[in-house]
Amino acid sequence: MANHSPYSVVLTYLEDRQEITLQAIDRAKLAPVVAGTLEVPVLLEEHNFKLDDAFARRLGAAVLSLIELGQPAIGQYMSLTKDPID
């Protein structure tokens, strides 16, 4: 596996192209862009440090819901459960 420096992942909904894109960007380059913006911490300890399917589903639901706040049109495609599934 290739060795990469730490990077962030940027997820963007491109409404005009009806697609979601993922981009990897060096954290140092991204830092000045995101300074002072909304930050939603997800504490791994609160999830018992388990990055499993349930965690991924909840994280995905949170990300899509956040995108929907700024681009409500994506909501017409969303059918997800925001609460934990037992």
Rank of each mutant, 00 (worst) to 15 (best):
H47T: 04
T37N: 03
E46L: 13
Q18F: 04
L22K: 12
L14W: 04
A54P: 00
G60W: 03
T37K: 04
V42Y: 01
V63C: 11
A61V: 06
L44K: 07
N48C: 05
N48A: 13
A28P: 00
V10E: 13
S65W: 01
A24Q: 14
E39Q: 09
R58H: 05
L43P: 00
A54L: 12
A62E: 11
A54E: 15
A54K: 09
A31R: 13
K50W: 02
A54H: 09
F55G: 04
V63L: 14
L66Q: 10
R57F: 03
A24F: 13
L66S: 05
G36L: 04
L14V: 08
V33E: 10
E19V: 10
E15Q: 13
L38F: 02
K50E: 13
R27T: 15
L66R: 08
R58N: 08
A24E: 14
H47M: 03
V33Q: 08
R57K: 05
G36A: 06
D26F: 04
G60K: 01
A61H: 02
K50T: 04
P32H: 09
D53N: 08
V40R: 07
A54S: 14
E19I: 08
R17H: 09
H47F: 13
A56Q: 08
E15C: 09
E45S: 12
D16Q: 14
A28V: 15
D16C: 03
D16T: 12
E39R: 13
V9Q: 12
V9L: 13
V33R: 05
L38C: 03
I20D: 02
S65V: 00
V40A: 03
F55N: 01
G36M: 07
D52Q: 01
L22R: 13
Y13C: 05
